[in-house]
Design a protein around this nucleic acid. Structure first.
Length: 402
DNA sequence: ACTCCACAGGAATTGAGGGGTG
DNA sequence: CACCCCTCAATTCCTGTGGAGT
């Protein structure tokens, strides 16, 4: 018989540590906020907004700063009758083309009963629909494109800022705010887009350990009961996150998870040990998540590496991975891919941090190649693969470590 | 300084699969 | 229904490249 008790020895307000929690004020980002505010000033003046481009790694406050400032902007706009401000927020996370972005913007602006499908239309038709929706709204429209680096062609970034100049829009003043996790994204933009979109650029640097600790301690004060934190916990959380990504999100997640572990244990304090364990489970979750998203072919490529690892034959070059991959694919009843393609899967895997890759070059006779090695515990990879892909791991392979 | 290997990874193309319009 | 549009995995072809051996 399950019974639910309120177990409150640790958290008094655990929401404060969750990812979607919006703090009232943003810490440690004063300089960036000031710059950002300046860039938004034309909106209040009723002028054509400037296009703004924000870049910095995940969890350094880009999105939070945007939401924070836009809220204030809306409040300020209330005071001026002639100011009609709309903001559209779109996360381009699962979108990879301008076409998809345009469709999603249209759907964002339209009635829920009047949505359009994500394929089928000619590109220009979608842009026309988008212009029509924008005209209907009128006034100043700020379009926030979060994680904009996911898209691989920049048509829409070219179209939107110029729509007004090209006569596609007349009653509306559009402004684009692009948010990118990848500062090299800017370099991949075509020159014509670069100078329109990047009128204002604001760089968000990673937080350092001190800044993270300040952020954490403020949130911890609100989220946790007094005296549940061991002395080393906050410094450790911030150090882990600072070393890795400099992301506030990461450090908060770590603290939350550590607290969660402590709660499950029924103890009334969070220790350094909890933090280390939390770090571990988060890492494991990340890997599993990454592996689940792969296609069957990706799993097979990974599996080929795993099987080499079981024999202690890693790192292994792709030349040697291929034959094994091939037989495994055949056993699994799938058509094996061509080598070129399997290499793509391998490099996907290393991008996700599931494999590590070493560049080798043996010169004249040897040539250059990549050596791959598992970047996760072999058993973990094996377990996950068996779970999700129904691959029968031959006993011979599995016990070869012995 | 030059050469030459083995591969990485870019470019172009295809074909199946989502969907549209009239 | 015929015909068109976009996407994505996959294939084919090809150029680029780092550095040990000459």
């Amino acid at each position: 018989m399950p019974h639910f008790n309120r177990d409150n020895e640790i958290f008094c307000q655990e929401d404060v540590l969750r990812e979607d929690y919006q703090p009232e004020k943003l810490q440690e980002r004063d300089a960036e906020l000031e710059e950002y505010e300046g860039a938004l000033q034309p909106v209040i003046n009723g002028a054509q907004p400037r296009n703004i481009f924000l870049y910095g790694k995940t969890g350094v406050g880009k999105t939070a700063a945007t939401q924070y400032l836009l809220n204030h902007l809306h409040d300020a706009a209330e005071n001026y009758d002639d100011l009609d401000l709309t903001t559209v927020f779109l996360n381009c996370n699962n979108l990879n083309s301008s076409y998809q972005v345009a469709i999603n913007l249209v759907n964002e602006l339209r009635d829920p009963q009047d949505q359009i499908s994500t394929t089928g239309y000619p590109q220009q038709a979608v842009f026309d629909m988008l212009y029509e929706e924008l005209e209907n709204i009128g006034g100043t429209v700020l379009i926030v494109l979060d994680e904009i680096d996911n898209i691989n062609n920049d048509n829409i970034l070219y179209e939107l800022p110029r729509a007004r100049a090209n006569g596609n829009l007349s009653d509306v003043k559009p402004g684009i705010i692009g948010i990118s996790n990848d500062f090299t994204f800017r370099e991949t933009l075509s020159p014509k887009v670069k100078d329109t979109l990047c009128e204002e650029e604001i760089h968000f640097p990673p937080y350092n350990a001190d800044e993270l600790q300040n952020i954490l301690s403020e949130r911890a004060d609100a989220a946790l009961y007094d005296d549940v934190l061991d002395q080393d916990v906050l410094p450790l959380c911030s150090a882990f996150a600072a070393q890795d990504t400099g992301s506030a999100r990461q450090s908060l997640k770590l603290l939350y998870k550590a607290g969660d572990l402590a709660r499950k244990e029924g103890t009334d304090s969070i220790t350094e040990e909890h933090v280390r364990e939390a770090q571990h489970t988060i890492e494991r979750g990340r890997v599993e998540e990454g592996m689940k998203k792969l296609t069957t072919q990706g799993h097979l490529a990974l599996f080929a590496v795993v099987s080499h690892a079981l024999e202690g034959k890693t790192p292994v070059r792709s030349r040697d991975i291929y034959p094994r991959y091939k037989t495994m694919a055949e056993q699994a009843g799938t058509d094996p891919l061509v080598r070129r393609r399997m290499n793509d899967h391998l490099s996907d895997l290393s991008m996700q941090g599931i494999l590590t890759v070493y560049e080798r070059n043996e010169g004249r006779a040897g040539g250059s190649y990549y050596d791959y090695e598992l970047d996760v515990p072999t058993q973990l990879a094996l377990t996950v693969l068996e779970e999700i892909e129904r691959i029968d791991v031959p006993q011979s392979v599995r016990h070869q470590t012995a």
